[in-house]
Nucleic acid binder design. Structure first.
Lengths: 187, 187
DNA sequence: TTTTGTGAAAATCTTCACAGCG
DNA sequence: CGCTGTGAAGATTTTCACAAAA
């Protein structure tokens, strides 16, 4: 089983087989007639395209429940995300161990960011603090923010923000259920 | 400022103005020429379409870091999500207070689900336990699962699952940064 | 004149159909 | 044969252009 057909991939992912072939062709992954696609090729090429082959250094700011969960979240390591520092302003949390990390005081953030040339920050602070922290991070040279606070951050155009929109996800789920006629609260 | 134009909404959301008009028309929100759309209409109608006007009862299963964060996440209440029960199998956690909730033992889940006729479950258990818990929830009559474990759950076709794909979100952010030429790790 | 609402045009995305290759 | 690769057809989405309304 070192080869896989577009039809099989299509079945697993739940899309049309032609689509799979077109997409793989678009990222220059070639298959062989009669045989299919070499699984090694698919995996390595796809990883490359998605940027998972390089190591991705990042800092995590905010070690509340959500921050702690993220620091321990399984699978980030597999995606190449390496947290080179985990920070919180709350001195009660500083020194605590979270997964593999020890919480550092915010004061250390500047030097860690500079030493490791970190460009990416995971933001898991309370909503009211998010914009301020983001501004500060940007001034430190951060140019990518993975934002978990439910607020739209204002950043310069050269900074990329990805909002993890839990509220939106919930709305979509609710809508899907309702469109199937499921009542979510007893009348 | 009780009216808003499609052009203004388009600017805020970052899409074409015609698109805004088409979409609003699709959900039966009418505007008035020269004036625009009545903001009250837009908000109330849109809330209705998204199912945010009804109360949405749900249970939360799993009170680790992520579960705790979710139980406290601001904004769910505004979206109409009401957690009627918060559960964990770990007796060390049972009885603990998380935000407004008290952690209940899994044994109580069955009766709470039945009494409140809960159809929606938020799943925040360790990856290895997710499928088992999901199976059990479905057998209790749950028909919507908001899954935070990084695993594709196998459920009957009448059950709706929404995966909160943190890994995917990260991959997208990394890809965006790389396409802008940002190196995320020093060489 | 400004802004909605919408049919028509343009662009894009998806599927079909089949040549080519092993 | 079975499966890839791809041009053409089909479907859908987005944009354009303009009539109608206040």
């Amino acid at each position: 089983m070192t080869f896989v057909s577009s039809a099989h991939l299509a079945g697993v992912v739940g899309v049309d087989a032609t689509m799979v072939r077109k997409d793989l062709a678009a990222v220059a992954i070639a298959g062989r007639p009669k045989v299919g696609y070499f699984i090694g090729d698919v995996l390595s090429q796809l990883s490359g395209v998605l940027g998972l082959t390089d190591r991705n250094d990042a800092i995590l700011v905010g070690c509340g429940d959500l921050g702690s969960a993220l620091a321990r979240y399984p699978g980030f390591a597999r995606l190449g995300l390496r947290l080179v520092g985990v920070f919180d302003t709350d001195y009660a949390k500083v020194g605590r161990t979270i997964g593999e990390h020890i919480v550092l005081p915010m004061e250390k953030c500047k030097s860690v960011t500079r030493i490791f040339r970190v460009k990416l920050a995971v933001l898991a602070v309370p909503t009211r603090a998010a914009q301020n922290v983001a501004d500060w991070l940007v001034s430190q040279g951060i140019c990518g923010i993975w934002n978990f606070a439910p607020v739209d951050l204002r950043v310069p155009p050269d900074v990329v923000v990805r909002n993890e929109n839990l509220a939106l996800g919930l709305a979509q789920l609710l809508h899907q259920l309702r469109s199937r006629g499921v009542a979510l609260a007893p009348s």
